[in-house]
Nucleic acid binder design. Structure first.
Lengths: 356, 356
DNA sequence: AACTCGCTCGATAACGTTTACGGAAACAAT
DNA sequence: ATTGTTTCCGTAAACGTTATCGAGCGAGTT
């Protein structure tokens, strides 16, 4: 024998199907068949086996089962972090749909780092999931695109799907299911709402060149300005990530630099809006009396600060990602590309600008 | 041959170590050794192998590896839901620590249902994780205790650890690492703070008999009342779960029933506080001018609504859970039981009661 | 009575790794 | 030149499960 049976270093061992078989006085094949329910067994044998399973508290070894080729029931999801409400809700959607389709769900986090994301995809690939769902928002340079594209092909070769969730396709020939939001349309609506209320100096918080979501939103912002023939002032676009403390930091810095040269704020997401709002309040400015504000997401902080914002169906995004991947696995064809709609939710954070 | 090689139903196949070996002109053992770095190989062979790996874009099959007995690098975490900020932060802590110890992390959700939690533990058990971390807050009846206790023993038998995170031990003889908060102490401090400000009629939002966290907090609430010799009125304890909309519902119902008979609110957590606050505002009552309020958690909503609350180190809870499990796996001995401290964070939601 | 089914169930070959064991070179020492 | 010592690498046996094949055995058909 090459090494101790069923062994790990600490000398512990799992109950195996063989022990169940011995105890029940049948063969391993019979136990396997009965447990998988794939075959008609005699009622007497069946109850003998079930009793042995109970007594030994047996659970099948998932790895052996997977190796043997049958089970293919896992879905991997990779997000920036689970403490971001947006990712949490998308992950929740993935979980829910995966559970409904009785799949196990594996979550990995990247912290928004492209390198770690690539490594995580490789890591997930080892487990042969049915789908790898990428939810993060990373800076995609050419190197990244090339490697991720290679991984997408490798995934496709083993019958697994790469799903790009909330981000645009990698390229025309990269096999990936894509499901994203109408970020540009939402940002266009949000900015237009402020413009219709007479605001012309609108601060954009959360510019982040290279990050697709941020890029798409700022594009909507610029488009709306152009459509309303309001001059675009690059100085009104402030760089920052999509977190609460970043919103606070950006607004603090802006206010420290001099008197506010804007009447409204469009924040890249609700988190930023919440942080910026806190900075405004600490500076003695009120929302919406002194400064109007619109956010993006419509997640929990929005209701608490009475924020007008753009709603996106976060959980639905996750559910759709799973559903499309599974459907595509069954039906084949070219990978689908779906865009989910967004819409403005009116609350009390916007007032018409006082003229004269 | 029993069935098609390397097969799944759709006829796709993975690159195996054998193909790498053939391409490199060496044996599979050599490839395995080189990839695991467990053995000195000749530089020439090494580069041949690495090139073949590159060209074939080979990644090892995790299941085969696990079956073979070496890898033991996965940690399972089971939570109620990932969209609850508290669980999200704990999960984040688990993820971070697991990543630092280079473990894969698997998340499962239960929706707070005891039955689903038990099923999820069984499901995770199939994968032989190093530890199963239970973070949820479920109603523990005798049936539940008995089954979970059995699972704990089964887990221990295969060298895996059950970790109870944020909840009390199952029993003295159940092998489980326990790491929890000082919920009672925190609630005592929160209630005392309100009492010191002259409040005597304090509404408690979020009673939930049988749920350990809720029970521990309400115990602190009652203890504080007793310590300050303030009569305890059971009618001031309102039943409800720990979600935002529940806080809203509870407060709405209370206000609909008649004029407020309280001057302060102690909410089971910040989410409840945020919901209750919204209901108060819709009813024309201001916080803290008309009603003082204290929460529990110190998570994002707290800062936005300027809520005085009890801080607990959420991420640290998750990190500690992983760390203790891994340490115990190395060192053995009786499973540790740790209690993490909490403290009051003063913001602007509490005012002294106006007397006379 | 011989034969053919149909129904259960047992023996066994895979699945893709890792690792103990042993063999074959290469090199140093006598 | 022979032996002893390394160094490197190939053979093959596990790990625990599932699926194929075929054996045994009653019952039904000629």
């Amino acid at each position: 024998m090459a090494r101790k049976a069923n062994g790990s270093a600490d000398g512990t061992r799992h109950t195996t199907i063989r022990e169940v078989a011995e105890r029940a006085g049948v063969s391993v094949a019979t136990v396997s068949r009965i447990l998988s329910g794939s075959y008609p067994a005699a009622p007497a044998t069946r109850s003998k086996v079930m009793r042995a399973v109970e007594e030994l508290d047996y659970v099948a070894n998932h790895h052996a089962r997977a190796l043997s080729g049958t089970t293919r029931k896992s879905i991997a999801i990779i997000v920036n972090s689970v403490i971001s409400p947006h990712y949490a809700h998308v992950a929740q959607g993935v979980q829910t749909q995966a559970a409904e389709d009785s799949r196990l769900c594996q979550i990995g986090t990247t912290g928004g780092d492209a390198e770690r994301e690539l490594a995580m995809v490789q890591f997930m690939r080892e487990q042969h999931p049915e789908a790898v769902i990428l939810v993060g928002n990373v800076a995609a340079d050419d190197e990244y695109r090339a490697r991720m594209s290679r991984y997408a092909h490798a995934l496709a070769a083993i019958g697994s799907r790469l799903v790009l969730c909330g981000r645009p396709p990698l390229g025309p020939d990269v096999p990936a299911v894509v499901v994203e939001y109408d970020n540009t349309g939402g940002a266009f609506a949000a900015t237009s709402h402020l413009l219709s209320n007479g605001h012309k100096r609108i601060l954009y918080l959360g510019r982040r060149p290279g990050y697709t979501t941020a890029d798409a939103r700022i594009e909507g912002y610029r488009d709306a300005l152009a459509a309303h023939r309001v001059p675009h002032d690059p100085d009104l676009e402030v760089d920052g990530t999509f977190e609460r403390f970043e919103g606070y930091r950006m607004m603090k810095a802006r206010l420290a630099a001099g008197a506010p040269d804007f009447t409204a704020v469009f924040a890249g997401n609700d988190q930023i809006a919440a942080g910026a709002r806190q900075a405004l309040i600490e500076h003695g400015l009120r929302v919406p009396e002194d400064v109007s504000m619109v956010g993006f997401d419509d997640l929990p902080p929005a209701a608490d600060i009475d924020l007008t914002t753009v709603y996106q169906p976060h959980e639905e995004l996750g559910r759709t990602a799973v559903r499309l991947a599974l459907e595509h696995a069954r039906q084949g064809g070219p990978p689908p590309h779906t865009v989910l709609g967004t819409h403005l939710v009116l609350r009390g954070s916007v007032r018409p600008v006082v003229t004269g």
